[in-house]
């Protein structure tokens, strides 16, 4: 019996298709297979539970618009700077084409969606990065959009929340990308000066220049479970220190253990957590 079962398994494997990376992250078909526990769920059901695997709790990557739906009270979100366009300052071949193709794919003008909305009736400025757009990398437009969102929050004296998801700086814009780290920082400094709340929510992945700027300096730093968060890439570190890194290296849980995070928050608790934190920081509460 066992032998027959074994043969059956093998057969099954041979005819199984390997889903592409994109398919793993973006449930588009009727059914979705969890990349962690391999269990199969109806995509419709997955979307109902904020794109978290009902079996193992794996947090799927979310698009910026999906996050808006999860976070804000219905029909309160008003986007900002949706028409701003990336140019090709260093003249890299086919850079604009790549950006345009991702814009078409995601419906975003760049790797971040910014705007203002209400969380349980509390007006909040937000920036949501989307790793489906050029790996969420930060160039001039991403830096400018985030800066304007922070400035808007400062002007209106409201909290600013950022959801980070980024591989780091946008190589094709060179040192201009690097300087977006400084630009967003000078804006955050002003926002902080006015005694306003800034919450950073790090989602998978948050690395490089984004991790080494706004993502790490929230008054409160949160992260989603298992999110990859770090300064340098794992491969670079392994080559530098010539040792095997622990399995959980640079995960949200690893950062929490090393004192780099305030809390790891499950997606189903995120809105409630943010809403409560904002309430604690309103004038009436103080």
């Amino acid at each position: 019996m066992a032998i027959i079962r074994e043969m059956f398994k093998k057969n099954k494997k041979r005819y199984m298709t390997v889903p592409s990376e994109a398919a793993k992250d973006m449930p588009e078909g009727l059914m979705t297979k969890c990349p962690e526990c391999k269990s199969i769920v109806l995509t419709k059901d997955l979307m109902k539970c904020d794109k978290v695997c009902p079996d193992c709790g794996h947090h799927y990557k979310m698009t910026a618009y999906e996050r808006v739906d999860c976070l804000f009270d219905e029909d309160t979100f008003i986007p900002m700077d949706e028409g701003m366009k990336t140019v090709n300052p260093l003249g890299f071949p086919s850079y604009e084409e790549k950006v345009n193709s991702d814009a078409e794919k995601t419906g975003l003008n760049e790797a971040v969606l910014t705007g203002i909305g209400e969380i349980d009736g509390q007006r909040t400025a937000v920036a949501i990065m989307d790793s489906h757009f050029r790996m969420g990398s930060m160039g001039s437009v991403v830096g400018e959009k985030i800066t304007r969102a922070i400035e808007k929050a400062t002007e209106e004296k409201i909290p600013f929340i950022i959801f980070t998801a980024s591989g780091g700086a946008r190589m094709q814009e060179g040192v201009l990308s690097l300087m977006q780290m400084a630009k967003t920082s000078v804006a955050l400094s002003r926002h902080a000066d006015r005694g306003l709340l800034f919450i950073s929510v790090m989602t998978h992945p948050t690395t490089g220049g984004v991790s080494a700027s706004f993502a790490s300096v929230g008054d409160i730093n949160l992260a989603e479970p298992k999110a990859l968060i770090g300064f340098a890439g794992r491969r670079v570190i392994e080559q530098t220190v010539r040792e095997k890194l622990p399995e959980d290296f640079q995960t949200a849980e690893f950062l929490l253990e090393h004192g780099q995070l305030d809390a790891v928050v499950h997606r189903s608790e995120m809105k409630k957590t943010l809403s409560t934190l904002i309430r604690f920081h309103t004038k009436e509460a103080r």
């Binding site: 900002m80 949706e82 028409g83 140019v87 001039s140 300087m179 977006q180 000078v186």
Partner: peptide, 16 residues
């Protein structure tokens, strides 16, 4: 210092 860094970046302004 704010002005110096605030102005760095190259992009095209668009209509919303």
């Amino acid at each position: 210092r704010y002005r110096k860094f605030r102005n760095i970046g190259v992009y095209k302004e668009g209509e919303n």
